[in-house]
Design a protein around this nucleic acid. Structure first.
Lengths: 87, 87
DNA sequence: CATTATTTGTACGTATGTATA
DNA sequence: GTATACATACGTACAAATAAT
C-alpha cells in the first residue's frame, strides 16, 4: 500500500476515542520505522504537520512530545525535531 | 519568614527571563520540601493554582508536568496531583 | 556581515469530554 | 445527579534560536 509516502495520510479519526495526538504519534512512528524519515533527518515543521493532519499545532506538539519521551526524536528550538539513531 | 504559608506567594517575575512555569515549579517544590504539602496529599487544583499565581491554567499544567517528570508528584485525572513519597 | 524568514518555546484564552468526588 | 478536576483540542500572539537570503 501507499501508506509510507511523505505527507499523504488518511484523515485522522475524530470519533474513535483515540486522542488525535496519539494517532499522529502512531502515524509518524510508522513513517519513521518505514524509512520515510531517517536518523539524523528532521521531521517536517510543526506548522507543516499541523496543516497536513488538519489539527492544531498544539496537538502536533503533544504528539512530538510523546515521540521525544519514547526516545524517537529530539527537538531543538529553531531547528526542528530530529530522528534519533535507532537503538 | 512567611514563605511557607499556603497560598500566599510573591508575584511571579514576568521580566526575569525565567519562564513562569519554571517559577511555579520552583515555588511549589519549595513548599513541598518545606512540608506545606506532604506525601499522599493533593496539591490545590489547577484552577486554584491558576488563580493563586495569576497565570493561565496552561502554565500551571506545564509546571505540574515538570514536577511529574521530576518524580515529585503524580497526576490523576479527576483527582488531582498527589505528592509522591519522598525518595 | 546584516536582514529576513523559518521554527520551536512560552503564554494567553476558550470549549468540551471524561473521570472522580 | 451535580460539582469538581484533569485531558483533549481548538485558537491567538509574541519571544527566542536557528536557518536562509
Amino acid at each position: 500500500m501507499a501508506a509510507f509516502r511523505k505527507g499523504a495520510t488518511m484523515a485522522l479519526e475524530r470519533e474513535s476515542g483515540l486522542p488525535l495526538w496519539r494517532q499522529v504519534h502512531g502515524i509518524l512512528l510508522k513513517e519513521i520505522n518505514g524509512g520515510v524519515y531517517r536518523p539524523g533527518e528532521r521531521l517536517p515543521s510543526e506548522s507543516s504537520l499541523s496543516r497536513r493532519f488538519r489539527v492544531a499545532r498544539h496537538t502536533i506538539r503533544r504528539a512530538l512530545r510523546s515521540l521525544q519521551e519514547a526516545g524517537v526524536v529530539r527537538t531543538e528550538r529553531g531547528r526542528g525535531s530530529i530522528i534519533r539513531d535507532e537503538v
